[in-house]
């Protein structure tokens, strides 16, 4: 009984998160400007991290948390670097 509830709810949650990722990719493709794309990339990282947390609950293992943490770290560093690049790199398109 409880296994069925968990299976279905986590599946639906993963579908929600996948749709969220689709929405961020849509914004990333549409732009229109570099900062919109970077913002979308950051949101995509967060969605991926949450997806891994959901996966961790689904499989009942804690290994995915380390992966989630690493993805969070990479997303942070990547977004900061890109934002810095926007400030210093190509100022005028």
């Amino acid at each position: 009984m409880s296994a069925t509830i968990l299976f279905w709810s986590i599946s639906v949650a993963q579908v929600f998160l996948a749709l969220a990722m689709v929405a961020t990719v849509y914004r990333m493709i549409l732009g229109p400007r570099a900062q919109d794309r970077i913002l979308a990339l950051d949101a995509l990282y967060v969605c991926a991290m949450l997806m891994l947390v959901a996966f961790g609950i689904r499989t009942g293992t804690t290994v995915y948390f380390e992966v989630a943490l690493i993805i969070g770290l990479l997303g942070f560093v990547g977004t900061v670097a890109l934002a810095k690049f926007l400030m210093r790199g190509e100022v005028i398109e």
Binding site: S9, A13, L17, L19, A20, A23, A43, C47
Partner: peptide, 16 residues
């Protein structure tokens, strides 16, 4: 889990 995923989805829809 559903509430969390739904909120994230709403946020990303807003982004789009």
């Amino acid at each position: 889990v559903l509430a969390g995923a739904l909120l994230t989805l709403v946020g990303c829809i807003g982004l789009a």
